[in-house]
Design a protein around this nucleic acid. Sequence first.
RNA 1: GGGCGAUUAGCUCAGUUGGUAGAGCAACCCGUUUACACCGGGAAGGUCACAGGUUCGAGUCCUGUAUCGCCCACCA
Length: 727
Amino acid sequence: MNDKFLKPYNPEETEKRIYKLWEESGFFNPDVCIEKGVTNKDALKYSVMMPPPNVTGILHMGHALMITIEDIVVRYQRMLGKKTLWLPGTDHAAIATQSRVEKDIAKKEKLSRHDLGREELLKRVNQFAKESHDTIVSQLKIFGASCDWSREAFTLDEKRNLAVRTAFKEMYDTGLIYRGHRIVNWDPKGQTTISDDEIVYEERKAKLYTFKYSKDFPISISTTRPETKVGDTAVAVHPEDERYQKYIGQTFNVEFCGVPLTIKIIADKHVEKDFGTGALGVTPAHSMIDWEIAERHDLPRVQVINEFAKMTVGGENILGKKVTDAREIIVEWLKSENLLEKEEEITQNISTAERTGGIVEPMPKLQWFIAVDKEFTLKDSKIKGIESGSKTTLKQIMRTVVENNQIEIIPNYFDKTYFHWIENLRDWCISRQIWYGHRIPVWYKNEEIYCDTEAPKDADWTQDEDTLDTWFSSGLWTFSTLGWPESTEDLKTYHPTNLLETGYEILFFWVARMVLMSGFFLGEIPFEKVYLHGTVRDAQGRKMSKSLGNGIDPIDVANKFGADAGRMALVVGSAPGIDTKISEDKIKGYKHFSNKIWNITRFVLSSTTDFDVNAKITQADEIISKEFNETILDITKDLEALRIHIASEKIYQYVWHTFADVIIEDSKKIILEGSIEEVTSRKKLLVELLENSLRVLHPFMPFVTEEIWQSMGKENLLMIEKWPSTK
RNA sequence: GGGCGAUUAGCUCAGUUGGUAGAGCAACCCGUUUACACCGGGAAGGUCACAGGUUCGAGUCCUGUAUCGCCCACCA
């Protein structure tokens, strides 16, 4: 027996060395497995694309959970003998990364991005992204990720950029990408548009003012934003509101705080009779809802606020003023004119930009969109329910694949949430006015527009200044990572992937967009199963955050208790879709388990030095062996069904409370007092149980099991051993 | 306002197709020169939120109620 077993298990000394051993073996790469005869050339494939962590900093517990679940599945599949590919990567996370760097620069150097200029800023962001990438990669390794680093991808590297340009052009040529003057969410602080999903609502106190535009205007209206009223072109009332019937269809000319307005009275079902005065001042250019009303009634749309949230109309009392200042000035004016009827305090949800915290100003802008309801012909379709050559829409693709169970979402109640989101989906605004990201492959010359993967040959074309929403490139992830648009071997072999494992909070952001992209470009699903894990919370159930200071750093955990312990603590009993709480106590428990496995080995090895492989097994031992096989079969079924939270608990239970507490305890007596037959049989059994326990434990706790395997003097790596057969 | 989920032991949570309620932690008793105190044995602890229903049988399926949580929309 190796002397190592005389001391307690020391993860700190072990884990880095073991990871290096795996990495140098090359077996994370399925091609190497085939070359070296570990995997059969014709074996089934199993592929998983790692959700690329953002290069905005360091790994958190959520990443650790993601890595653990994926690594368990991947190691299990590899041990089954499948051609297993787990492809890692990182995400440039456009706006998140740029604003992170901008903040740093503003703080340290008191400079804005405009002071630096596009080129210099990008240099800085790239530098930051690189450092962040290196940190993240080293952290993924600490947690034991058995992914194929030789295929690593970045959403903003050259290959992915080609994929993005190709994708844009194809969608543009099909007419699904269009440029439109539409109302968008403008973030004045970040100076960019943002998507609906990048908005967070904050509850705030606000004043609701009720007033008339002028003395001779017949209807009072209510608003929390009087300054936008200089852009009103209508007052909308409910079609059945008796109070206002006689005014519907009339037009009034008024002078509102020095600005002449033409207000048409219209009837629209959207207006609620019971809110405020039952009349809504319609500001088409600065409210989503009002824009839609304006579209229905063909109203003029007047922009009165600019990109810096400053007024663009009015006399010098308001022109050029910030919206908040203009609001006060207009309220003062209303008071002085005796037009203000009521002023009440209400709480309202205000839209703010997720990344910058700026208050979102809806305004009309010329932006690029993806049409989700527009019909196009899907040439080659492998999607069930959509024939090759038939007409479909992106929305229909997204709905169909889940509806007909071609993609299974785990837990399946998320189907409903998914469908609900799709029903309410509007065209996707994909252009962003930031610099870090994929530049839109469109060039302009006078009135001409040119879209291609490469710049036009002749000069005097200027490229669109904007970049793409980061989710555009993430949407291509399952196939851009495999070499698309080229028709590579990898793409043929590994797509569609078998599993996408990610947090439920990005079901819409990302999962749905991958379905959209894969459906459009390949006519197939991006993955067969979606496993949604929950949020990792602290012991009190709070979200981990910097401001609370309650975060647990996965790397600290690995250093203190070992990555194996951290992995088990994250996974045992934490069902898909359910948030999970983690505490040091829980992790410590699994550190003890690592040591338990270590000591089981010590006992078994020290008491079976003379064991005989050909020993005859007694009936009693045969039963024990069979029972273990049944447990393994059980665990195998759980793993096949991705019930990882149950599989991990079962092997823990078996190893500690059956193998150690019962079988080993009994063995002590048998070895001392049993007949020769009983002793030789038992020794053989103990070795068999130990080896198969290590095999089954390996996906969950790869480091300690591999270290034991190596210390037992085995020739092969445990990571490429075969999963125990369960005949 | 719309949707989704949760409610099981003191705490944290599992519970596959309906078949006698499970784990970890905590607490209690006992043991321990031993593979391991990063230990072992034992006992205790639950009207599975509530009310109906389906069924031979319900924690599990259906209906309703209550409380909590999350997501989406957003009232001008």
